[in-house]
């Protein structure tokens, strides 16, 4: 695949088991920089575990991850470098509920950089402004709606100007309109800030529209990788099953209803 320079994240043979159950069994994936890369998969396919292994929260059993051509893992310097250049948006936002919106956003700058107070303040406010959250700077996360919390979490993830942002199920539990809004938000700020986005989700139609490249994770393996157009036209049985689930549902429902002619 692509040369190391254009590939920000390389994953090779990533495996992870929990209590003897293998969740990831040898994942190989290369994420080219500067695009939205979406890993699709049904619930329970190990998408979140995959993302947590990449983020360095869950240690993998086997496999190697390299960031910007440098292998992560034992090397603490490379890991620190990776942490500084990578932001994560958690499924539940993981906002600090005892801090205000502004404090949440400025926390990573305060704790990991040597910037002075004014600089931190102005950068944090800028991040809030970008996500149209500056009116809520003194609100606590608990007082914000779900969509606002998502925006606040994104503001916190991008305030350090990362080159790679990981999105863990950014649309979980949202209604279709909000799902669209979240994908629009990702696409907008990906373009604006120029980071690479690695998204895991099970929302096929939204992801296909918003992503530059998609992969399908099922049964602990990458079953498919390509452009959204490839995905739509693929005849791969797993892809087809996952992609055409709506049609399958329609058929099932029809089958249930058809023996009752009176229902018409």
């Amino acid at each position: 695949m692509g040369a190391a320079s254009s590939c920000i994240l390389g994953i090779r043979g990533l495996s992870k088991s929990f209590h003897g159950r293998e969740v990831l069994s040898g994942i190989d994936l290369e994420v080219p920089s500067g695009m939205i890369f979406t890993v699709l998969g049904p619930s329970g396919a190990g998408k979140s575990v995959f993302l947590k292994c990449v983020a360095g929260i869950v240690p993998p059993d086997a496999g190697a991850i390299s960031f910007d051509g440098r292998p992560l893992g034992r090397d603490a310097r490379a890991m620190r470098d990776f942490r500084r250049r990578c932001g994560v948006l958690f499924q539940g936002n993981a906002l600090f509920d005892s801090l205000t919106a502004l404090e949440n956003v400025s926390l990573p700058l305060e704790q990991t950089t040597r910037l002075d107070k004014e600089e931190i303040q102005s950068r944090s406010l800028e991040a809030l402004r970008q996500l149209e959250m500056e009116d809520f700077r003194d609100h606590h996360p608990g007082a914000l709606s779900g969509g606002m919390q998502k925006r606040l979490a994104l503001a916190r993830a991008i305030v350090t100007q990362p080159e790679l942002v990981l999105f863990d199920e950014p649309t979980a539990g949202l209604d279709p309109l909000r799902r669209n809004a979240v994908f629009a938000m990702i696409a907008k700020y990906q373009r604006l800030a120029g980071f690479t986005a690695l998204v895991v989700t099970h929302d096929v139609p939204e992801a296909l529209v918003a992503s530059d490249r998609v992969a399908l994770l099922e049964k602990g393996r990458i079953q498919f990788e390509g452009t959204p157009a490839d995905f739509t036209s693929s005849t791969h049985p797993v892809v087809a099953q996952f992609r055409d689930s709506e049609a399958a549902l329609r058929a099932t429902i029809a089958a249930i209803r058809s023996p009752e002619p009176a229902a018409a």
Partner: peptide, 21 residues
Amino acid sequence: IQRNTEQIAALETMGVDSVGY
């Protein structure tokens, strides 16, 4: 609760020493 809502994981991914913080 911070562990369960991934706040501790979030600190780690920011490069903040969660125990120190």
